[in-house]
């Protein structure tokens, strides 16, 4: 199928949206409420494009390509509409960029820069600040919320928890929990997936102590379970200060509460960093070589005295399939017993 975008012809697959076609062609279209993983919502109106023969502007996220469609993604009319949308958003936004934790990684800020919005044209009522700090891991500040709905849809469509939703109508809409009882009293499982998708500073991790440009990202695999979720550690001055999900297999940008928020053990003083060997009733630090030698000696001794079935092995849910495989191999082939099991079965 052929379509013409900004005067250039492209061959595209049938059944994709204009937005997808543009992205494949390397044309950037701004979006605030879109996420490839979710049903299109078309609520932010930033992805509007002009189509020849159509009076109205259409949202590229929800319009399928048609043979010989002629699309303009950055025409004067489109740019004007996007600017006005940003202006309207900014006219109802606190503009606390100087102190906002999201600064430097905020889509609203980025688009205002791109579209040259320096200040709000409309001075009038503002959304009332309604801050929910009841969750132990993250906060919601309604005054900064642009009501893109991404948090609600992620919680519903991907996380499957449906803890949050919109309340009220029109100008008074806010994101909230049923009967306004606060996140801590809701079904929320604190997975933080809503925090990860929020394009602005409305949903933020508690006590964020960094600005985005001070950090670097280190891709790693979550160590909590065998799923192997990919994530980016947010690192400032060699300390892990946050975690962001990576949008790749197997987790597609999702994490659970442990992956997202339980990273503080990394720099915790109680954390074990070397093996410990008990000598004279007291644990003492040892090297890995020492530890392995000690284990091998003990295993041989016990096996000689009591036979291989004196051993039983139990692995952890934090091990991967590969690790579990190796573990049972160790027990069956090396030690010689079938006494091997996994904690997830208990």
């Amino acid at each position: 199928m052929n379509i013409i975008i900004n005067g250039i012809q492209y061959e595209v697959e049938k059944g994709i949206t204009i937005l997808e076609a543009c992205r494949k062609a390397g044309i950037d279209i701004p979006t605030l409420c879109h996420d490839d993983r979710l049903e299109p919502s078309s609520s932010c109106r930033m992805c509007l494009v002009e189509i020849e023969g159509s009076k109205k502007l259409v949202t590229s996220c929800s319009t399928l390509v048609k043979e010989n469609m002629v699309v303009y993604t950055h025409s004067a009319r489109v740019m004007e509409a996007r600017k006005e949308v940003l202006d309207l958003l900014v006219s109802n936004h606190p503009m606390e960029c100087l102190t906002c934790a999201k600064s430097g990684k905020c889509k609203l800020q980025d688009y205002c820069y791109e579209y040259g919005i320096t200040e709000a044209s409309y001075k009038g009522a503002r959304r009332k600040p309604k801050i929910d700090t009841s969750n132990p891991f993250y906060d919601y500040d309604a005054s900064k919320c642009i009501l893109c709905g991404l948090c609600i849809r992620v919680c519903d469509e991907l996380q499957g928890t449906s803890a949050i939703g919109f309340e009220n109508r029109g100008f008074d809409v806010v994101v909230t929990t049923p009967f306004n009882e606060g996140l801590v009293n809701s079904k929320c499982v604190s997975c933080g997936n809503c925090v990860s998708v929020c394009p602005v500073g409305a949903l933020t991790p508690k006590k964020q102590t960094y600005r985005h440009w001070e950090t670097k990202k280190v891709r790693t695999t979550c160590s909590y379970c065998g799923v192997g979720c990919q994530m980016d550690l947010v690192v400032k001055e060699n300390r892990v200060v946050g975690v962001e999900p990576a949008n790749v297999v197997p987790n597609d940008g999702l994490l659970c509460v442990k992956g997202k928020f339980a990273y503080k053990f990394i720099n915790h003083p109680d954390r074990l960093k070397t093996p410990l060997i008990k000598r004279n009733g007291k644990f003492e630090e040892a090297s890995w070589d020492e530890a392995y030698r000690y284990i091998r000696r003990k295993v041989n001794e016990i096996k000689e005295e009591n036979g291989p079935d004196a051993f039983a092995g139990l692995t952890s849910a934090r091990c991967t399939n590969e690790e579990n495989y190796l573990f049972q191999k160790l027990f069956r082939a090396v030690i010689g017993t079938n006494n091997v099991d996994h904690c997830a079965r208990l």
Binding site: N92, Y122, F171
Partner: peptide
């Protein structure tokens, strides 16, 4: 303004500004 559902930006924010 009373009846806007509040889903999309132009209607939610824009009609309020017009009313003001």
């Amino acid at each position: 303004v009373e009846e806007s559902c509040g889903k999309c930006v132009p209607c939610r924010e824009g009609t309020k500004r017009m009313l003001e």
